[in-house]
Amino acid sequence: MAMIDTTDLTKRYGDVTAVDGIDLTVEAGSLHGFVGHNGAGKSTTMQMLVGLVSPTEGEAYIDGEPAGSAAATEKIGYAPQEPEFYESMSGRAYLVYMGKLAGVSTPGERAEELLSWLDLADAADQAIGGYSGGMRRKLGMAQAMLESPELLVLDEPTATLDPEGRASIIDALQGLTDDGTTVFVSSHVLAELEQFIDTVTILQGGSIAASGPIDEVLSDVAAETYVVDASDNRQLGELLEGHSTVEQVRHRDDGRLTVVATDPQAFTVALPELLYEADLGLRSLQQEGGLEETFLDIVNGAGEDDA
């Protein structure tokens, strides 16, 4: 059975449609990435799954139970994007309190376990008001995991963490799916996300732009992306604009060119000829096509359509 199953899930606030007819399926035990621009509807969708926001139309089910019902809530651990805590409480006291609300039989022990696992043990008796952004993020994850949920819904779990902190969270998430927990996670750090997720949904303007196993989603977007560095990138960019094998040329901040090829094979044949005719040298050529590029392709493609 799917752990998350939504049909035509929609949320409107007056004239604004935040989420528009989402049909989403997430299999149990998978690590599912949920990607989209700010304002794409990710957080609203997650809040509907958790039962904090009621849908305007459509349905959502968590392991067969209606989202928002007591039976569904029992299966979920949720960490919001910007978690708010009781600032005067210590981290330990907070986890014990949340553990009691979650119905954990030994909230004190479970709190100690999570504090230790997430490297918060030393600050456990400190008031949360004194925690750094990374510590608050970890505390948010800890409270989501108190009741060892079957489904973890994490909204930007690695934001504000240093690389070491992000790596430890990612390791932890991968370990959880090995134990059968389903993880539904959103992130803006797409290059990092694609390293550990099994499936992905790309959200745009409240609707699903692409969804499925990560390999299929990346290959479905027909273009291949290359990063080119020549002896004169500006001149090369002008030559590539409008070339038959090239869909798009973007100038990067580091001076190199990102080239989206419509026909990758033809492009790799045509490029050396172009460089030779223009008397330009090739410094490096790298192939991309990761999640970040796919996401930008989808978004920019839609932007061009809109234009």
């Binding site: 809040q47 958790v50 039962g51 904090l52 007591a70 809530t73 029992e74 979920i76 651990g77 949720y78 919001p80 978690p83 708010e84 805590f85 009781y86 949340m98 609300l101 979650a102 119905g103 948010g140 409270q143 009741e147």
Partner: peptide, 9 residues
Amino acid sequence: TLRIVLSKQ
């Protein structure tokens, strides 16, 4: 702070 509370059982 109510969001996390109501996400619990």
